[in-house]
Write a protein that binds this DNA or RNA. Structure first.
Lengths: 196, 196
DNA sequence: CTTGTAGCAGAACGGGTGTTCTGTTATTTA
DNA sequence: TAAATAACAGAACACCCGTTCTGCTACAAG
């Protein structure tokens, strides 16, 4: 009997996620979200309950839509340096495609803007970083079987830090070139360290 | 004849800078600034003209108050890896002193929050990064006289990126320990690369 | 075609925003 | 002591925020 829905909850979450991604949480108003998603205030509240809840759902969706496709190769047990390089290249190409200076990484942005003042966001960010760290550690250990666990962990953690730094940089550069150079330098340092 | 001032413009700028540093621009209201600085709205407007102008002045002050004291040693022509290590250690100790998870770096925060949507902030951030890059390049070239200019520049730029990543991390960690481990890993990678 | 129902757009709301303005206060010179 | 001056505290302002609510719309069942 009822009127059929003109949008799905997934539509809402994904469109809102893109807005939060490029403009951050505070600088995105409900009016912005209504315009960006094409969904009325009522729809947003009945589907998700409010701005903050929508942000958190968008954060989770970012994992499926952006992180997993880019990171899956690293998480396989055949991965190595070339998969790490491909991961950075893929994300840089995505940033260039979206336009530079660009939105960077939703998680990296959340780490700076939200995490220190919002425990829920901090927990999601930490989980994300832990996932990246495990993936990088997997790839490094495949590449350097003789390296100790402590050294691998330290390098993997540092790769997570470098990724965050890279997305920060992507918010001020005009072209992908400096980002590619950063990634290249990082890979060089890694190779240098692994081959000792 | 007039009533004497109870505060200086510098007082205002420095106290406001600390608030922007820890809470960001959007999440700091004029009420917050009045409470944090102890200076009335009228004083803020007559001294600086408004919130944004105050932020930009605070940004400039950050260079003198925080960056220069920490970075001066690296900019001397006798600097090397030990000065780079000391710079990171000093900033990490400062972060620990201010409380973790902490404010990170005002410039790093601005890069994420403001730079993509504010050309004036972007320009100041770029100038800061350029200063860091030159300093790091100076220290690296002192340490590795045989290294080519292009390699030195790439490493110096990457050190800037790592610094930004480190301050991002400082916004989610509970203790300085992981930050020190990151700095140590970075220095190890650098040494490894320089000694080839 | 009528009726019931859920979705819809947008008005309304209290509170907070950055900014401006208005009196008052404290101090120094005359 | 009295007048002049500029800084002070805080009220006032118009606007925007996230949230809630109201009345209308469009479709499916009877």
């Amino acid at each position: 009997m009822p009127r059929p829905r003109t949008h799905s909850k997934d539509d809402l979450i994904h469109r809102a996620m893109e807005r939060f991604w490029s403009h951050g949480y505070s600088a995105t108003s409900m009016d912005d979200l209504v315009k960006a998603t094409g969904i009325s205030r009522h729809g947003i509240y009945s589907d998700c309950g409010g701005k903050r809840a929508l942000y958190l759902e968008g954060f989770a969706a970012y994992q499926h839509v952006v992180v997993s496709p880019a990171f899956a190769a690293i998480e396989q047990n055949t991965s190595g340096l070339s998969e790490i390089a491909a991961y950075f290249e893929r994300q840089i190409a995505l940033a260039a495609e979206m336009g530079l200076p660009g939105p960077g990484c939703l998680v990296a942005n959340a780490m700076t803007e939200m995490a220190p003042h919002d425990p829920d966001v901090a927990a999601q960010v930490s989980a994300h970083n832990q996932r990246l760290k495990s993936g990088f550690a997997n790839a490094i250990s495949n590449e350097a079987p003789g390296m100790g666990r402590a050294d691998i962990d330290a390098l993997a953690d540092f790769l997570v830090l470098s990724a965050q730094g890279l997305w920060s940089m992507s918010r001020i550069v005009e072209t992908p070139k400096p980002l590619r150079r950063h990634a290249e330098t990082l890979l060089d340092l890694l190779k240098c360290r692994i081959t000792k």
